[in-house]
Design a protein around this nucleic acid. Structure first.
Lengths: 338, 338
DNA sequence: CTGAAAGCGCTTACAG
DNA sequence: CTGAAAGCGCTTACAG
């Protein structure tokens, strides 16, 4: 066992060396009360001489503030995870907060969440990483929570930040219809338990609607934001002989699988079937043909959510819904020549 | 301000309700002393009735253990970050530790590291995220630290886990020489302050050496593990008219830039110039031609480092060097036909 | 402007 | 097996 902790100087040591009381040192630390210049310099000196650093835990216990925020997510994976975390970590440490991370995948079932009021001042919850009952409990005890890419249950006022899924999907599907004259556009749906899926489906339907195209349920298949699933769905739909001239794949990952299925069927992207995705993963620019897709400001999502959470911690208030704008990235898979 | 904390039940509430002393509840919690069955059930009941959860901070203060480990890195970015963190987070929470993350990039200069003996039981340090003097201080106070992808200063015994950079590079460069008869192989060097760069350079030189090829300093250029830099270096070397028939790019990112430069010069990969990288980024499989490279077990690096750290915390001992094996991924850019 | 003292929620010798 | 009490390192009314 290490003894590092017992060797470190405490506030009492500093007080003794400076010839002042513990309270005075504390006041110097927190700069929350006037101090004589004399005392100030003596404390200052003692602190540097002892190489003193306040003990975070002790301070937390005394103030009932932890100066930490927590991030809960399902699983650490995927292209968007890094920029999301980068945004969060940046804002958090800039605001003087520590960042605790926990993925529910690695918590054994049954064991309760390791992150909560006991060790954080507030929580960032990504997608459906925290089940509704637990969310409800947190919310009812007025514990600061901000949701990312998921809206709260209708009766709970928990702030949420996400991206313009619906509008972006509307735009990209409309692009297929208007610019490239596609009429039979497949939708590869995302997983049911992710809210992004639903908004994207809504955007897809709206785009058909506005352009007077009929909604054909046979063109809607599971894609699950996965390459494999999308591949199989696409294979299947092609084998059924339905007329298909375009695909909104749900996300880029699914687009990968769908493109493969199309090419294996001897058809061409985009000539025979135009393809669009969502996310703008890094590889989407490199595949053949390069993928037309939607870029979401993921780092910004992280930053904004963190700012909101810190606001919520400090003031008790935060905007309830933040929708960040997305950007259409036109490449060759839709038929554009760029 | 939230009042969540003052509403939560404390150990005292549990004791009162159960009709026992605070000490008894504590003993039940820690299961570190015999307890009468009667007391046990009463405490048990009181705890569930009050929905009691021990306060982590208070416990930390009393035991001088934080039950948290910290991860320090320079910047949250890149393809390997996600698997690394996944491995770390998994091991940490499985062992009952919290994970604190801090990137030095987001700490203002001057401000001291937010992670240390005050709020963690041990630190994982990635690459050169912590400067040597600070590392020395930690090590001298016997604070548990494990280094990732970086060895300690020679006089410090800090455990380190990394991958077989040298052996892997030796193998992949030898492959270029033996299987594809390349004789003029460029080395695009990584950044000087990353240890990986040096081992890879050593592996490159060894491969030339063993095969009786002369080392030509004109073939060694800065690549910096960056696409842009590699592109420029490659452009330059090609314009100088040196005979070049192969490139070890340092990493995949650099290979991207180098391939572009070669193709822009009207040459073919791999026919005119064979290309190999290091990392096996996700896109490396999708580029044209698909990149031959080295795959490192990044998640495993994270897991192993975390296990070592926890061992170090508990026993004071840990293996000083762990070298994880890598895997050669043969694709078309080297001339293999797969 | 400054100090003595109580308290934050826990753990752990020390007695019994 | 169990309780009273001191202590972990800080902060913050309360007096002065």
């Amino acid at each position: 066992m290490t003894k590092a902790k017992t060797e470190a100087a405490t506030i009492r040591d500093v007080a003794r060396l400076a010839g002042v009381s513990v309270a005075t040192v504390s006041r110097y630390l927190n700069k929350n009360a006037p101090l004589s210049p004399d005392a100030e310099t003596r404390v200052q000196q003692a602190m540097t001489e002892l190489n003193y650093e306040p003990h975070a835990m002790a301070r937390s216990l005394a103030t009932l503030k932890t100066n930490a925020i927590g991030l809960m997510l399902n699983k650490i994976e995927g292209d968007f995870f890094t920029p999301l975390l980068e945004g969060i970590e940046n804002e958090a440490t800039q605001a003087g907060y520590h960042l605790l991370i926990s993925s529910s995948a690695s918590i054994g079932p049954g064991r309760s969440s390791p992150l909560g009021p006991r060790n954080t001042d507030g929580l960032l919850v990504f997608s459906n990483a925290v089940a509704e009952p637990a969310l409800r409990r947190l919310s009812e005890s007025h514990f600061p929570v901000v949701l990312i890419h998921q809206s709260p249950p209708p009766d709970l006022r928990i702030p949420c930040v996400t991206v313009e899924n619906k509008a972006a999907t509307f735009k990209i599907v409309s692009h297929l219809i208007e610019k490239h004259q596609r009429r039979h556009i497949v939708l590869l749906r995302g997983p049911d338990d992710q809210e992004d899926s639903h908004w994207r489906e809504t955007g897809y339907r709206q785009a058909l609607d506005v352009h007077g195209l009929p909604f054909d349920p046979r063109l809607v298949r599971p894609g699950n934001f996965e390459r494999e699933m999308a591949y199989r769905s696409m294979k299947e739909i092609l084998s059924e002989g339905l007329p298909v001239d375009g695909v909104f794949a749900g996300d880029d990952e699914a687009a990968l699988g769908a493109i493969l299925a199309i090419q294996e069927a001897g058809l061409k992207v985009p000539d025979d079937v135009a393809m669009v995705g969502f996310d703008d993963q890094r590889i989407s620019e490199y595949i053949n043909p390069p993928l037309t897709t939607v870029r979401a400001p993921t780092e910004q999502v992280g930053r904004t959510a963190t700012q909101l959470l810190i606001n919520l911690i400090n003031t008790g208030e935060a905007q309830s819904l933040t929708l960040l704008p997305t950007e259409l990235i036109l490449r060759r898979s839709c038929g554009c020549s760029t």
